[in-house]
Design a protein around this nucleic acid. Structure first.
Lengths: 142, 142
DNA sequence: TATTAAATTGTAATGATTACAAATTAGTAA
DNA sequence: TTACTAATTTGTAATCATTACAATTTAATA
């Protein structure tokens, strides 16, 4: 927990129990939770928690680049504490979001185009291995 | 206009004036319009047009990969008629979405991972050239 | 310990999208 | 050309994620 305190201090953000809980949740659940996921989970141990606080905190953490906000689904924002450049895969059937550990090789080239790049998002969408197999089996059966 | 008719025929989609108007709009406005943008513009020449029709049509066109649905902003879907693989840049200040004419070199590699990739989205977010310059000038002035 | 700006809370509002049922229409076959 | 049917369009109402806002509370500092 102390490492989260350090993280907030380094970023000159006020240290609140809510923020620490949110960071800890994201650090221990690399499933790319939404604000609602985060709220529902943390509400169990902290019934006084407000949904607005979760939204506000996630936004603050995002602005300081402590977490990354994914717009892969288009319906809702997902959050990722994982450090380092990586991509994501979204299954259109089960909704699973997977980490794809590759880096965009074009990233550096783009910095010289006059535009100031702050975030790089690589999204792949389709059917995950599991759902692709289920799909196949369905088609085989009469 | 005939080319849009062909496009729908090839995809075995019913040809309706609404769908033709929507495709034409996207083909002649490569500004990545939202459903609402599309609705408002086409409503002028066709006051009977329904917002739901625009949403339905865009979804149909997307499912047939005639248009691409971008989730770059996180607030709303944007649509792109442009053919061929390319990426996008979103300016966080002015909201402009630019085409970035590069292809993801990892695309093929991923096909061998068990997951079935249907769409590749490369999103870069930051400050566009214009907004980056304005930002600089602001800081220089006292 | 007192102060103050910032954060939290709960409720209400917003905005994009979807659900749904009735009316209309495109494509097909007689 | 006409009749039929399934698909599409339309308008309204609902939903869902997110934001606005004002009152209360709290973290950081002196």
């Amino acid at each position: 927990m102390q490492k989260y305190v350090q993280l907030l201090k380094q970023n000159k953000i006020k240290i609140t129990p809510q923020r620490l809980q949110i960071i800890q949740f994201l650090d221990t659940h690399h499933t790319h939770p939404t604000a609602e996921d985060t709220y529902k989970t943390l509400k169990k141990n902290n019934p006084a928690l407000s949904r607005t606080t979760v939204y506000n905190s996630l936004e603050t953490l995002r602005k300081h680049h402590i977490i990354q906000e994914l717009t892969i689904s288009g319906n809702e924002h997902c959050y990722d504490f994982k450090q380092g450049s990586h991509h994501h895969f979204l299954c259109r059937t089960c909704g699973l979001i997977l980490d794809i550990d590759i880096k965009c090789p074009n990233q550096d080239r783009l910095l010289h185009n006059g535009h100031h790049i702050e975030e790089v998002h690589g999204y792949f969408k389709g059917l995950c291995k599991n759902c692709a197999n289920k799909q196949k089996n369905k088609k085989v059966k009469p």
